[in-house]
Structure formats: C-alpha cells, structure tokens
Amino acid sequence: MTMKIERLHLSAGLALAVLAFAFMSAPVQSQGETRAMGEMTGHSGTVGTTNLSQFDPSEYLTTWNFNNLPPNQRANYYQEKALADGTMLRQYWIYASDDAVEVAPGVFYAGWAYNGQVPGPTIRATEGDTIRIHFFNGGTRAHTAHFHGFHPASMDGAEPTQFVQPGQTFTYEFKAEPAGTHVYHCHSTPLKKHIEKGLYGMFIIDPVGGLSPTENEFVMLMNAFDTDFDGENDVYAVNTVAFAYAQNPIKVKVGEKVRLFLGNMVENDPINSMHIHGNFFQVYPTGTLNASTHYTDIVELAQAERARIEVQFKFPGRYMFHAHQTEFSELGWMGFFEVESNESSGEVA
C-alpha cells in the first residue's frame, strides 16, 4: 500500500540497524502454498448465449434480399420485378431506428440499426438491375443510406441537404454497378458515430451471368462495438455477435467451393483481417475483377474495404477463423468452420 510510509519507516532508525539485524537470524517462513483447483484453463470466450430470435448470426450468413422471411412478410421489405430489358427492378423498404443490439451474451449496445439489425439487411442484385430503396428514418437523428458503387450525386446521401430527418422518408434509386462486393452505410454527421453505432450493411452485385455456382455463399461483415464509449472497442466480431461462430460453427463440406463476401466496418481501429486455419484461399479485392490477386491464408482490410474470398477445405474437421490482430480475436472475432467429409468430392481424408 504505502511506498512512502515504508520508506519513512525504513529510514526511521538506520542508526539502530545493527541491533535489528540481530533479530533477523531466524528465517521467515515462505508463504508459497497454493491451492490448485484442478481447473483446466481453456479458451477465451463469452459465457451464455444471445437471443437468436432477435438476431441469428448463422441465418445472417446466407440471408440477402430478405430471403429468410416467408413470402407474405418478405413483400413488406423486398419486391422484385423483371423489366423489359431483361434486368430486374428490386425495391427495398429500409428503416433506421434506435435499437439495443446484443453484441455478446447479455451485453446490450445502445445502437442505431437498419431494420432493427446490425449489420443491416444484405442487398444483392445483378449488375444493371435497378435498385430502389424506400428509406424511412424511424430513429431520433438524421440518417441516410449511402451506397458504395456507381450512382448520381443526388443519390449519394452524404450532403447535409440529403440527410433524412427523423420521421421523413427518401427514395434512393440507381443502377447496380459495378459488379463486386460492396457496402452501404449511413453518412450523416458525425460520420464516425453514425457508422460505429451500427448503420451499415452489405451490398453485393453479381456480374451478369452470375458468379461460378456454389451452394456455400456466406456474408461476413467484420464489425466492433465500443460499448462503454471510451474510444476503444470492447467487442469485436464478424456479424456483430462475439464468438457467434465459435458457439455455432459454419458447416461446409470438404472440396466444395466456399465463397465469402467479406467486408470491414470496424471503427476505432484502422485495419482488420481474416485468417483461416489449415487452408489457403483466393482473394478478389472488392470483388470487381474476376481475377484473384492473392493465394493466401490471411487477408487484411482497411475501414470499409472488402473482398470476395473463395476457399476449398482440404480436410474434414474444425478450422478456426479469426482476425490475426489477436486482441480482436480474443475480444470476440473468432469462429469455426465445421468441415464435413464429402463422399462425392472424393477427397475424404
């Protein structure tokens, strides 16, 4: 407790030190005894489970254009219509609101969300389609929906004149281009606040004719939450919930093509990454060109950067994936692929 007092006492009688030493002859017994609990010290991780009926990270992976909803409900948020030129008109009903987001079991972040979820609903179209977003601001502050991709300046949602006030609506309309893996987010000010609060989502544009076919397409948006608002993130994740895919691993099969639409919307940290254990993958930066630039097991993304990733798992088993900023990883950005053997692929290990 008290360095000063100790020093003082030490000093108090230096003149009598010799006398005191006479008393030091008997050794002081060690107090090193410990009680081992026999308890295994295991992985980092959270305790408990989040409310999946509110937001299910596993469902989010494969949800775009509200395809998780039954048709009658889906029509409230998404409608599509084939146009004469062969493209589609895709209409979305998106609203912003103030929401408590469960970012780790039992930990609720006072966030702002699109359609009550963070990340917001994934929007997926084919290049050339018409995107029409009916945006309603049900929150308490001015918000927008600013899409990455080509669009006229009037649809940018970044100028103060374009801020949608609480209770107001605005309709964004533009052609989906270029093909790639994009994001959308609120561009109200202060910008950092509006993004870190949770107003972002994935915007995927497929090339005409589509990407190479696979059943295994997953949307992964890396994000983080500064739950105590001190400028440092307390929870890191892919798709909001800390350790979600460690608790419920993503199931894939040996040899099958697994495509990840990966984006990074982390605030407060300039860079993020994804590393997959025991395998290597192709990286298509921003997903715009159909050419891989890296064959690697780790990809780094700056803020709002994204990439399409394609991987084929070589062996069955559990393969961890996580940010290789290990702090992020142990604060929640870690999960597993559960790779099952695949008879038809002939690559049973």
Partner: peptide, 16 residues
C-alpha cells in the same frame, strides 16, 4: 522483497 524491506524498516523504527 518489499515485504522483507518493510520488516527490517519497521523493526528499526519500532525501537525508537
């Protein structure tokens, strides 16, 4: 080590 230093220091002091 601090604890041991304290023992010595207090011991000297307590004579006073």
């Amino acid at each position: 080590s601090l604890g041991t230093a304290l023992v010595l220091g207090f011991m000297i002091h307590n004579i006073t």
